[in-house]
Write a protein that binds this DNA or RNA. Structure first.
Lengths: 249, 249
DNA sequence: GCTGCAGTTTATAGTATGATTTTTAACGCG
DNA sequence: CGCGTTAAAAATCATACTATAAACTGCAGC
């Protein structure tokens, strides 16, 4: 398994990540007891303080529940806050669950077109400029590279911001996780294929520029739809045994 | 201010709630330093253990950020996970922010019609029965009472579940918070006025029963829209000085 | 003998306290 | 201006003690 917890991280982070990934990956099933004290055979050794703080952190995410006398147990999946940035990071660190990815894209499909629509109606010139700048960086950098990822995140994030609804903006994390993961899968793809998603992004931008809400919504729906299909295709391609830049251990 | 932290709660919970509400209410502004050790003048006295665990819990919600040497500070609003159940509880415990409530309803308007649509298409007979049972309880209990709130929550929650998308279901907390709060405002309303929202709920149920996705979506949009208007009206009514069952201190 | 309630035990989370280490912003020196 | 020093604050460690509630025990009653 990929160990997200590098030794350069704080001990707290190592412990938190380690337990969280065990839960998210299914190694620790719902209802399973989480040891009272740091387990010597768990790949880390920490004092009770950091261990307890890690458990509090995880309980804040809904992953575990502590009850006196009974012990601390892994909470049922329904209690997990799947939209939390950390949870998404942990979920995507482990083995890939195609259904979950579909669920995330389905949610994006409900939310992002509306965000784009509102952005078209409510944007300030400055907000439009930020979206445009991100788009430019997407156009001028090598496809499927790190700079593109950053620009793409900035693009979608700016649209959320322009929509002017802070509660909506919290769903940015869903976009971040699907995007990071999708790009990781497509790293070695034929660069010329990037023209399709790029055109999608350009269309949305133009609609927001022209303050055409309905158009922005429709184009964003297409964008997300295309992204889902590309991601699923890349996932199946990888599963068929193709070589990627990522160890599949 | 309303003190949510009852003395019957654990010390950890009292401390956590107290600091969180200070942040959510704006008493502690973004960037403000959070004391290193439990502040004797903060309404509670706890050991460093519980205090530190409380801070970890809050940092998991994105409310605060700790950096060595610089201190622990209130994070910018953009980092707060506004969709987290705890955060919503804390937010609604304090003074009411009409804009924020609008934002939450706007999000519901994007999400719940789609949830209803999927529920209509994907529901099992058992899931339909749960929605129906909740609706029945809404019909047979006194309007704007506690039993109705519970039934209403169950109704919306069951629809989320029937939609079959766990990531979507995490937004249940948004429905819970808006609903709790809306009902609190309307507690003393004329019972006959409840017929309108009730009819909305019945229409959505019928569409889900008939597996008519588009119809379910449309009706749910109407339901949320009506709920928003009722809530805003009740809010303005209360602000105009009308008596409610709740102390406005 | 079985049942059910009351009191006791005990495992586990929760709370308290003091000390030490690590990080890093800020300061001062050459 | 760069480089080493200092110190403030978080992070970590270690060890107590307390509170809670589930499980057990035993006696009274049927």
């Amino acid at each position: 398994m990929i160990n997200t917890a590098s030794s350069s991280d704080s001990l707290f982070r190592q412990v938190t990540d380690s337990i969280a990934i065990s839960i998210l990956s299914g190694d620790l099933e719902a209802g399973a007891l989480v040891p009272t004290e740091p387990d010597p055979g768990a790949g880390f050794s920490a004092s009770r303080s950091v261990y307890r703080e890690a458990l509090k952190y995880l309980s804040a995410k809904g992953l575990i529940e502590a009850r006196q006398r009974s012990g601390t147990r892994v909470a049922p999946r329904s209690a997990w806050n799947l939209l939390d940035p950390d949870i998404l990071r942990w979920a995507l660190a482990g083995k890939i669950d195609e259904d979950f990815v579909r669920n995330l894209y389905e949610l994006r499909l409900f939310v992002e077109p509306n965000a784009a629509r509102l952005a078209a109606l409510r944007r300030t010139p400055e907000q439009l400029a930020r979206i445009g700048a991100a788009l430019t960086r997407m156009e001028q950098n090598p496809p499927y590279g790190d700079a593109i990822i950053e620009a793409d995140l900035d693009y979608h994030g700016s649209i959320f911001d322009a929509a002017g609804n802070p509660a909506l903006t919290c769903l940015k994390s869903v976009v971040v996780s699907t995007l990071l993961w999708s790009m990781r899968l497509q790293r070695n793809k034929d660069p010329s294929l990037f023209s399709v998603p790029l055109a999608d992004h350009q269309r949305v931008y133009r609609a927001i520029e022209q303050q055409n809400g309905e158009q922005a919504g429709t184009c964003m729906a297409t964008l997300v739809y295309d992204a889902l299909h590309d991601t699923i295709a890349a996932l199946r391609h990888e599963r068929s045994g193709a070589v990627t830049g990522i160890s599949q251990k």
